[in-house]
Write a protein that binds this DNA or RNA. Structure first.
Lengths: 352, 352
DNA sequence: ACGGCGTACTGTATCGATCCAGAGAGGTTC
DNA sequence: GAACCTCTCTGGATCGATACAGTACGCCGT
C-alpha cells in the first residue's frame, strides 16, 4: 500500500490539508512544521503528491500532446523535425509541462487522442482526412498546427509559413535561370511506395504543407509557360535521403532528364544530390536542385533551399498552446521564409 | 462547463455507471442502449471519459516517462537515439500507453520526475549522480535503464550491452593491427567544452556506458603494454559530428599524431573521418578509426565499429516496463554486440 | 409454484489530491 | 475591553471517473 497525504498527515499528527500545503503552498504553514512534514514524508516513503490526482483536482494535465502520423523512425531522422521539437521543448521548459508523444498510424481511429492526458495538442504532421482531427475537436482543447484547414475558424491557433509563397519564389528562381524541364519530389504526395504520380494536382495531396508547396511551384511554372503535364511529380514513401535518391533514379535513368529537380525537404534533396554524384553528374552544372528547410547539412552541400525558422516555429507553437492570446490577431502567426541561393542552382544548359 | 458522464447520464435518463460501461465495458449493456448513449454523448459534446479521472480511478497513468539529460536537439540528432526511441514506441503501440518526454537539465532537482504522470521510467541517459535517480526511486515505479548502478539490486530492470566487453574486443583488434599510439574520443567524459582530459580514468566518468567503454579500451591497451598516460583522451561537449571533428583537430594538428582514434559513437567517429579527409589524410591508411553503434551511415563511410541492437534495446525496455517478469533472471537483459570490421581500420604504419 | 440463473442496469464507495470557508490563538488598535 | 487582524491549521466538498455489490426482471426446468 503506497503512502498518501493522509498517511503522512497521521504520522505527523496534522491534517491532510496541511501536508498538501507543505508541498504546494509553503507560505501557508510555519517553516518548522513544514520541515517536520517533509522529514516524516521521506521516512514513510512518500514521494510527494500523486501527479494524476493532482491533475484531476487542478484541472491541468501538465503535458501537451505532440501528434504525427509519420512513423517515428522517420519523424526524427529529419533535422527539421528535431529542431521543431527542440523549440517546443524549450517553450515548455520551466512551465512544469511535459511533452507526450502521440504517434499514430494512418489507420488509427483517434482513440489515442481521446485517451491522452494533456492540456492541448500540437499537430506536427497529419493528413487532412485523419480521424484524429475529429477526436481533437471533440476534446475542446487548444490545438496548434501548421496547417490551415477549411473548417478552422479565425480563432484557431496557427504557427506556420506561407508554403505556397515560398515555393513560388523558388520556382521563379528556376524559371528565370531558364529551366523548363523540371521535376518535383515530395513525400506522401500520394499513398504507396516511391513512384511517379502523373495525375497529381495540388488538391489531391493529403498534407497541407505539401499541397501548398506543390501549388506554389505549379503557379511559378505556369507563369513561365510550362505545361503542368510536362512536369514529372514523384511521391516518396517516406522522407529520407534514400527515398530522395530512389526518386531521382526515376528521373536520371531516362533519356530526357529534367534540368532541374525540386524537393519538399532538404533530406530528399540531399538524396537527389547523392544520386547525381553517383551518376557522375554535377549538381548545378548538369542538374539544378532545390530543397526546403535549410537544415545545417544543406549549407555543407551547397544546396539552394528555402529557409524556414524551425526552432522558432516549435517555440511559438508551445507559447501559443500554454497561453493562447485572447486577441484573434495574435493567434495566427506566419513566419517569414527566405530563398537561400547556393551552388546547386545554375542557368539551364539545353543540350540540343 | 464541460460535460461529464453525469451530463450524458441525465440526458439519456440512465445512471452514470451505465454511461461509463458504454465506453469501457460494452458487454455490460444492451447494444441499442449503448448506441443511444453514444449518440447522446456526441450531441451534448462529450468526448469520452476524462483521461485524468480514469487514470486516477484505474491506478494507471497510461504513459511511460523517457528520461535524458542530453539537451533535446542533440538527443535526437543521433540515429542511435532515434532507433532506440523507435523500439520503445513500437513496444507501447497498441498497449494504450504513450511516451512522455522528460528532458532535464543537469542541474534539475528531480521535480520533473516527481510530477510526471507515468507508470514507469525509461532512463535513456543520465549521469550517476543526478538527483533524478533519487526522485525515481522515491516514486517506487518500475525503471528500466541501460546502466547498472552500484545500488541496484538484482531485481532492477536492465536492458543493455556489455560495453566494456565490446570495446575490449575493439581495442584488441587495434593492438593486433600494431597500433600503440591511440586516442579516445567520448562525449561528456568530463564536464565542460571539447578538450583533452589528461587525467581521465574510467572511474571518474559520470555516465555508465562511457565509463564501461573507457574501461574496455583501457584493459585492451594495457594488455598490449600501452601506458595509459600515453593515450590522449578527449571529452566532447555534445555528441555530434562537429564535436568529433573538433576533437580530431586536437589530435591531427600536432606533430606526433596517433595512428588510431576510437570514438564512443559513430556520430563522433564520422566527425573524425571528416577531419581526416579535410586534412588530406586517408581513413585506415593514415589513421585507423573505430566508432560505436553501427548506424546506417557507418556502413556508407566504411567505418569499423561496434554493432549494438538499438531498436531491440528500446523494444525490450518497453516490454520490461509494461510487464516486468517475476523471475529475476528475466529482468536483466544483456544483448550481444559485434565488432564490424570495415576499411577504416588497417595495420599501423610507423613512420620512423 | 418455486428455486435457480443469467442479463441489464443502479447506487454507493473510492481513487488521492486541492480548494476554500472557517476556527482558534495571539497580538494590535482605539 | 471590544473590535479587528494576522497567522496557522482544519474539515468538508469536490474534481470525473471506475469497481463492485446489489436489485429487478424474465426465463427455464421440475
Amino acid at each position: 500500500m503506497r503512502p498518501t497525504l493522509q498517511t503522512v498527515a497521521d504520522a505527523v499528527g496534522v491534517s491532510r490539508s496541511t501536508v498538501s500545503n507543505a508541498y504546494s503552498r509553503p507560505d501557508q504553514l510555519s517553516p518548522d512544521l513544514r520541515q517536520r512534514i517533509l522529514d516524516t514524508a521521506r521516512r514513510v516513503g512518500y514521494a510527494g503528491p500523486d501527479p494524476t490526482a493532482r491533475s484531476l483536482r487542478r484541472g491541468r494535465a501538465g503535458a501537451i500532446g505532440v501528434l504525427f502520423t509519420a512513423s517515428l523512425p522517420y519523424a526524427f531522422t529529419d533535422p527539421y523535425a528535431v529542431q521543431f521539437l527542440r523549440g517546443l521543448a524549450e517553450s515548455v521548459r520551466g512551465q512544469d509541462t511535459g511533452l507526450l508523444l502521440v504517434p499514430q498510424g494512418v489507420d488509427d481511429t483517434g482513440t489515442a487522442v481521446s485517451n491522452a492526458a494533456v492540456d492541448g495538442f500540437c499537430v506536427f504532421c497529419m493528413p487532412d482526412w485523419h480521424p484524429s482531427w475529429d477526436a481533437i475537436e471533440a476534446r475542446g482543447l487548444p490545438v496548434v498546427s501548421a496547417q490551415r484547414r477549411p473548417t478552422d475558424g479565425t480563432d484557431a491557433l496557427f504557427v506556420g509559413i506561407d508554403d505556397a509563397d515560398a515555393t513560388r519564389a523558388a520556382g521563379r528562381h528556376l524559371t528565370q535561370l531558364g529551366h523548363r524541364r523540371v521535376a518535383i519530389i515530395g513525400d506522401h504526395l500520394a499513398a504507396g511506395p516511391t513512384r511517379p504520380v502523373t495525375t497529381a494536382t495540388p488538391d489531391e495531396v493529403a498534407y497541407y504543407g505539401s499541397r501548398e508547396r506543390l501549388r506554389g511551384y505549379y503557379e511559378a511554372f505556369r507563369e513561365a509557360g510550362v505545361d503542368w503535364a510536362d512536369i514529372t511529380t514523384i511521391s516518396t514513401d517516406v522522407n529520407s535521403k534514400e527515398s530522395g535518391a530512389t526518386a531521382a533514379a526515376y528521373l536520371f535513368d531516362q533519356a530526357d532528364r529534367p534540368t532541374a529537380v525540386v524537393a519538399f525537404s532538404d533530406i530528399l534533396a540531399l538524396g537527389v544530390l547523392d544520386a547525381l554524384t553517383a551518376r557522375g553528374l554535377r549538381p548545378g552544372h548538369d542538374v539544378s536542385v532545390i530543397g526546403f528547410d535549410d537544415i545545417p547539412e544543406a549549407a555543407q552541400a551547397s544546396l539552394t533551399t528555402v529557409r524556414q525558422p524551425a526552432v522558432q516555429r516549435g517555440r511559438l507553437s508551445g507559447h501559443l498552446l500554454l497561453d493562447p492570446p485572447k486577441d484573434p490577431t495574435g493567434r495566427q502567426i506566419v513566419l517569414p521564409t527566405d530563398l537561400i541561393v547556393r551552388d546547386s542552382t545554375r542557368p539551364a544548359v539545353t543540350k540540343e
